[in-house]
Simulated scan of single mutants.
Amino acid sequence: MMTDFPQALSIAGSDSSGGAGMQADLKTMQERHVYAATVLVAITAQNTLGVQDSVPLPAKIINEQFTSIADDLAIKACKTGMLADSEHVSIVVENLKKYDFGPLIVDPVMVAKGGATLLTEDAVITIKENLIPLATVVTPNIPEAEVLTDLTINSKEDMIMAGQKIKALGAKNVIIKGGHQASADTASDFVLLENGHSFWLSSKRIDTIRTHGTGDTLSACIAAELAKGVDVETAIITAKKYVEATITDGIIVGHGHGPLNHWAYRKVAKNAKL
């Protein structure tokens, strides 16, 4: 008999250092009290200093992972992360059309924190034309939004325009993450909802390099909240607070762009009402 415990799916690449990718998704979903399943699309050899190598998996095993999950689990929301190239984006799109895994969060991962390219140029077109139209929420950072929209983003007005252009690609809701925008005090994200309502989410900018996996964590938290039946706006606000907590109460791991503290909300959440 099928359990009704909330279940979510991460469709992404593996980060051998555990800070980003599928590992960050699993930790986040677990901390948000959601059972996490996975479809592994690519494997990376990486650490806090950078990505040393990566290999996409064969189509056959990716398809079989989707089938195995669909045959047994009750996935209520899913998210995508690193998808490598156009071929693998298309494989994922075909499976998402085949199986109903609930709301889809698209994190258009293009570049690792250390600067390594995680998405080929031809895959950007496939994401824009085939994956984003399936998305409930799309969560690009500023560099990713610039690639998706062919805009140069230097201001809040530019972020608003980028959000509108990405929504026009077919996404229901869009978050333009403003962490890359120069500001001494705050990091502000622009949120554009399906109903046309828009707002800004701002948090205090923390002076740290230990932010590896922030994008994965944000999108995974949104997916987890949606799997629990939370509305989109509340899920986005909760995810922003959760990520802020993981950065605020940091941990020291590695010698470069260190990972987040995924269990930090246990101490911080009382004040953040998570």
Rank of each mutant, 00 (worst) to 15 (best):
L119Q: 01
E146V: 02
D249Y: 14
L26P: 13
A239L: 02
S17L: 05
V39C: 08
K79R: 00
K204I: 02
S10R: 04
I251F: 12
E144Q: 09
V106K: 00
V232R: 07
A235K: 10
L9I: 14
M2Q: 15
D150A: 14
L119C: 00
I11K: 07
H262W: 07
K98P: 01
Q23F: 02
L119G: 03
W200E: 00
H88E: 06
Y265G: 07
S90K: 13
I105T: 00
G13E: 10
S10I: 11
G18A: 10
P56L: 14
P143Y: 02
A227N: 06
T211A: 05
K156F: 15
A112G: 03
A77N: 13
S10D: 07
A135P: 05
W263R: 15
I252S: 15
V93G: 01
I62W: 12
I160K: 05
G196I: 04
C78G: 00
N130S: 15
P140M: 07
N95R: 07
S90G: 07
L119I: 14
Y242K: 12
D72R: 09
T186A: 08
A227T: 03
K79Q: 05
L9P: 12
T28G: 00
Q46E: 13
R210Y: 05
G179E: 05
T211L: 00
E146N: 03
T214E: 09
A269V: 12
D25T: 02
S188K: 01
P56G: 02
S219T: 07
E157G: 05
A20E: 08
Y35A: 01
I69T: 06
A220T: 02
G179R: 02
K60P: 04
